[in-house]
Structure formats: C-alpha cells, structure tokens
Amino acid sequence: MTIRLPGADGRLHPYEPRREPLALRPGAPPASRTVLAAAHVVADPCADPSPGAPAALDWDATLAFRRHLWAHGLGVAEAMDTAQRGMGLDWPAAAELIRRSAAEAKAAGGRIACGAGTDQITGGTLAEIRAAYEEQLAVVEESGAQPVLMASRALAGAARGPEDYLEVYGHLLRQSVRPVILHWLGPMFDPALEGYWGSTDLDTAAGTLLELAAAHPGKVDGVKISLLDAGREIALRRRLPPGVRCYTGDDFHYPGLIAGDDHGFSHALLGVFDPLGPLAAEAVRRLDTGDTGGFHALLDPTVELARHLFQAPTRSYKTGVVFLAWLAGHQSHFTLLGGLQSARSLPHLARAYELADRLGLFPDPRLAEARMRTLLTLYGVNP
C-alpha cells in the first residue's frame, strides 16, 4: 500500500513503505571507538510553550529513550544542543535532567557525559562567566557524569581574544575532578558562537584550542569538533597532544571520520546518532572485528538522511530528530520545547520519513506509516 508524500515543490508523489524493519538487536558497547549519542528530550505536550516559560519534560519518556540507547551499546551525551540547550531547555531543567540521567546511567551500567555551560546567564564579566561554568560543572561532577565543557554564548560575547578563553577554560580544567571533553561548536549550529576561541580565522582558533589542551595534561579526555568540515577535523586530530581524543561532531562526514586513516580516527559524539542509535552501534561493532567494509555498508547509506536533517538552518535539526523518535514509537507525540516542532516544513518532514523508512530505522514500520498519515491529514493533505 502506498502513501502520498509532499515533495519540496508541494506536489504529492507515491511512496511504498517497507514492511519489515532492519533487524538490530541490543549489544555491548563498541570496543574500538567511544560512541556517544547526543540525546533529545521529550517535552510535556500539555505545558506552556511560550517564550520564557519554564521547560517541562515528560520524564518517563525522556529517560526511557536513554535506556534504549544504552541497551544498544551507545553512551549518552546528555544536556547538549540536541536536548535543546539554549533553544528551550533552561538551566533548572537541564540540571534536573543531568541528575536524573546520571542516576539512570548508574543503574543501567551505561556511559554518560553531560554538558556544562553558562546558559543560566545571558552575559557578564569573565568572572561571572567563570562562576556560571563552575556552577554547572559542579552539578555534572556531583552526579558522577563526565563533563563536556560546552561553548558559551556569554564568553563569545565577552572575550577580547584568545587569552580570555585560555584563562577561563584553564581555571575550569585546573579544578575539574576528572578529564573533560572540550566542545567546539561552529556557528552553523549556533550563530552566536561566531569567532569562538578568539578568532574568526579557524586555523588561529584551532591553535588556541590545541594550546589549551597541551597546557593541561591529564585534564582533557578529548575535543568534540562540530564544524561540518572533515578536512579541518582531520588536520586538528593529527595535532592533538598524546592521549587526547578527537570526538567527531560532524553530522555530514561521520563514517569516514570514524573509520579513520593510516594516521588515526575519530571517536563519536553525534546528534544524528539519536535516530541512528542501534544501526550506528552495530556498524561500529563491525569495526571491532576489522570489518571496515561491513561498517561502511551499514553507515554510509545513512548520510543522506543526516544531511537532510542537518540542512540549513542547521540548528533546527532537533525538529527532525524528535519527529523520527515519534514515528519510531519512542514517544507518544510530536512536540518540542518552545513549540519548535514548527521549525521544519511538511515536505522536509515527509522526506525525513521516507529516508528513515528506506533505512529500516522504524521498529514498527506500520506504526510509523500510520503516524505519518496522521500528520499529513492534520496539514490538510490527503495521503
């Protein structure tokens, strides 16, 4: 039975959904790479989505999704931009999310890393920004999770140059209890982060990041690079100090970056691994056995979906991620914090459904088709 989906031109085209999902069973964490999925949150659909209203989550569904990722062998990157940090998830809700998810991780035996930033303030002096980081870092460390020092809008606005980044981050690294992951989030994900690390010249910015990592041996587990530039990531990866990992945040080029080359490879901390979780974990487990061809056979076909979800404006990718979670049955509704389910068009969502269905990502293809039909009907489209 076919379903009629709207294309970018508004015209309907027939699509025949697959009947069976890709067979993917739960499994152990990959051994050759560290793989973290930046997980989305499930909003309370009855909460007030008005700007400035406190974030309200469906805690049961949010935590159940994290158990799903752990069961398939992935780690969870919590309270990151995929969870709508800075786009609906306020600091009080993020702090509660960190505490609850860390407790769930301990119970499930799953790996977790949590974002610490400065989003409880909108600006301030360097001292105030450092204090905001310290508050969030304390919450993460007290929960028992590994910290990810997230890029700060406030610091991007206040810093006069690279030396201010080195001072603020250096202070945090000196007091951190365990090695942290440094996060370089490009302006395609958040325009307010233009010129991060003290320069709009990316080579100069990379030099500052490398200087920071080298100056604090044993304090930096790795750096997460989210610039959507594979060549630049590889160049930086080859210059990292010994023992410092590169975590790719490149949702366009991740298969080749994870597979690596004769000079090394990237680990992964990716938002696209939220919808791809079971498939991604199985693909990396194939690398564990030396089956590079099998890895690429599984993961390369997912890039078309990833590029669709993360197309400009890239920061709206969360809408597609939550949409696919709804179709997959991980939550009962298609609602985002702040009403951001409206951030993508119906043709965009229809294409995401088609690409994900072709990959066999939906555990129950008939449920996904039924929900897609419901959405089309709500939009006044006869499927």
Rank of each mutant, 00 (worst) to 15 (best):
367 L>E: 04
277 G>V: 00
377 T>S: 10
336 L>D: 14
18 R>Q: 09
217 P>F: 06
208 T>E: 01
113 A>W: 13
201 D>Q: 01
114 C>D: 05
17 P>I: 06
99 R>I: 05
283 A>P: 06
123 G>R: 14
296 H>Q: 12
374 T>N: 14
81 D>F: 15
239 R>E: 14
159 A>H: 09
330 H>S: 07
259 A>P: 07
285 R>E: 10
11 R>P: 09
374 T>E: 15
254 Y>M: 07
127 A>T: 09
300 D>P: 08
56 A>G: 03
236 L>H: 11
286 R>D: 06
173 L>K: 03
111 R>A: 15
265 F>S: 15
295 F>A: 12
296 H>A: 15
196 Y>F: 15
307 R>S: 06
280 A>V: 00
222 G>L: 05
237 R>G: 09
164 D>A: 12
377 T>D: 09
179 P>Q: 12
30 P>G: 12
204 T>N: 07
208 T>A: 00
313 P>Y: 15
170 G>K: 00
272 V>H: 14
127 A>F: 03
198 G>N: 02
119 D>W: 15
100 R>S: 01
3 I>F: 05
249 G>K: 06
101 S>R: 06
123 G>N: 05
270 L>H: 05
183 H>C: 15
336 L>A: 12
243 G>W: 04
221 D>M: 14
211 E>K: 11
355 L>G: 09
2 T>Y: 10
116 A>G: 03
252 F>E: 04
134 E>T: 07
171 H>P: 01
359 L>N: 10
75 G>Q: 08
140 V>C: 00
266 S>Q: 13
79 A>Q: 01
134 E>I: 02
143 S>M: 02
298 L>M: 14
177 V>Y: 01
206 A>G: 05
365 P>K: 08
268 A>S: 14
146 Q>R: 14
90 D>T: 04
221 D>V: 05
45 P>K: 07
217 P>E: 09
135 E>T: 11
174 R>V: 03
301 P>A: 03
115 G>M: 07
163 E>S: 15
153 R>F: 04
324 L>A: 07
180 V>W: 00
128 E>W: 06
237 R>V: 08
83 A>H: 02
96 E>T: 12
339 G>M: 02
113 A>D: 03
164 D>S: 03
212 L>I: 15
171 H>K: 12
150 M>V: 12
289 T>L: 15
252 F>D: 02
229 D>K: 00
255 P>T: 02
136 Q>H: 05
118 T>Q: 13
191 P>H: 05
81 D>K: 12
164 D>T: 10
237 R>F: 01
74 L>G: 10
3 I>T: 04
43 A>I: 06
321 V>T: 13
294 G>Q: 13
90 D>L: 06
203 D>Q: 11
297 A>M: 06
355 L>R: 03
29 P>L: 00
160 R>G: 15
208 T>W: 06
272 V>A: 14
178 R>D: 04
189 F>N: 13
52 G>N: 00
248 T>E: 04
156 A>F: 03
72 H>S: 09
330 H>W: 10
67 R>F: 03
50 S>I: 08
343 A>T: 11
332 S>V: 08
7 G>P: 09
188 M>G: 10
142 E>R: 09
311 Q>H: 12
293 G>Q: 10
185 L>G: 11
184 W>D: 13
23 A>W: 02
189 F>P: 04
67 R>N: 04
172 L>P: 01
148 V>A: 11
192 A>M: 13
69 L>T: 08
363 P>W: 00
